[in-house]
């Protein structure tokens, strides 16, 4: 990377962007329907506890009416040899990495949508189908979606998946934080099935406290970093780990909300429609003057 990290460039980009538009990125308005409740829920994933049983993969499919197969089939650990990504058939996957500090056990890592506090998908969606809900979930309205896949280009974690094999009604698919289950007071399917309590469901503010407490009491077990506490402005799903998150293939994305620069430019160009209307008036003026000048020139000749 030639000695410069991409994060540095992003930081600089954000500053230039703010300068260009005369707006501060911190004043960026949230997307429509982007509710950021103080009581929003989240999940703390303790990767030092997870044993990679993949029961969560089964429970997730089962809860979302996707073909799940037998739970016993998930005991086969061979599948963990390759790195997988969530797709339209599997909304969450477990990947396995070599052991972290002070342990000989491999690190198992659950991957799903992070449910950002300032989601790029909500900001990007052309029809506004995505929304951040009061309970923290980032969900989307399938009936509105036109399949443009801008959410996929925008997502910093490369999470939304698309049904490329379908000719009619292809859908965007991703983890919805079991919105239908939590509405009824149930736990998300993965949290509910986890046999080792690697997943803690609760208010995000409490989860941060729990995470900090665990790190403080077991400093030889964890690295001092809760991934998701500040990344891209904070996420509802947060991670504890025994090794650097870069080694677990987490992207290096910085702390600025992903839609910040793009939204401030957008709102700068369209500030109450003043710039387009002024441009219209300016061009109208130029047109009138040039026409008048031509007429005068011709009159002068006669």
């Amino acid at each position: 990377m030639s000695g410069k990290s991409r994060r540095d460039f992003l930081k600089k980009s954000a500053i230039i962007g703010a300068g260009v538009t005369g707006l501060s990125t911190s004043t960026t308005k949230a997307a429509p329907k982007n509710i950021l409740s103080e009581d929003r829920m989240g999940v703390l994933v303790d990767t030092t506890v997870c044993v990679g049983c993949r029961n969560c993969e089964w429970a997730c499919k089962d809860a979302h009416n996707l073909p799940a197969g037998d739970l016993e089939a998930y005991e086969d650990r061979k599948i963990l040899e390759a790195k997988r990504r969530p797709d339209h058939t599997t909304l969450t996957v477990i990947n396995e990495y070599s052991h972290g500090k002070n342990s000989n056990l491999p690190v198992d890592l659950k991957i799903q949508c992070m449910h950002c506090d300032h989601p790029a998908c909500v900001s990007a969606c052309i029809v506004g189908a995505f929304s951040k809900q009061e309970n923290g979930s980032v969900i989307w309205d399938t009936d509105m979606c036109i399949g443009c896949r801008y959410c996929m280009a925008a997502c910093p974690f490369q999470i939304p998946a698309f049904e490329y094999d379908k000719a009619l009604n292809p859908l965007i698919m991703k983890c919805d934080f079991c919105f239908d289950r939590t509405k009824e007071g149930k736990l998300p399917a993965c949290v509910s099935i986890c046999p080792v309590e690697a997943l803690t469901y609760g208010q995000r503010t409490n989860l941060v406290k729990i995470g900090r407490d665990r790190i403080k009491r077991n400093s030889d077990r964890y690295i001092d970093h809760i991934f998701g506490e500040y990344e891209v402005g904070g996420t509802s799903w947060m991670y504890l780990a025994s090794k650097d998150f870069k080694e677990l293939d987490f992207p290096d994305i910085g702390r600025n909300p992903a839609p910040g620069v793009s939204e401030s430019i957008q709102h700068g160009i369209f500030a109450y429609f003043v710039p387009p209307v002024s441009l219209y008036a300016l061009l109208g003026g130029i047109m009138w003057i040039s026409k008048r000048r031509k007429e005068l020139e011709e009159e002068g000749k006669i």
Partner: peptide
Amino acid sequence: IMWNGNSALFE
């Protein structure tokens, strides 16, 4: 009919 003023693609 479905607007999202934050989206560059919408614009």
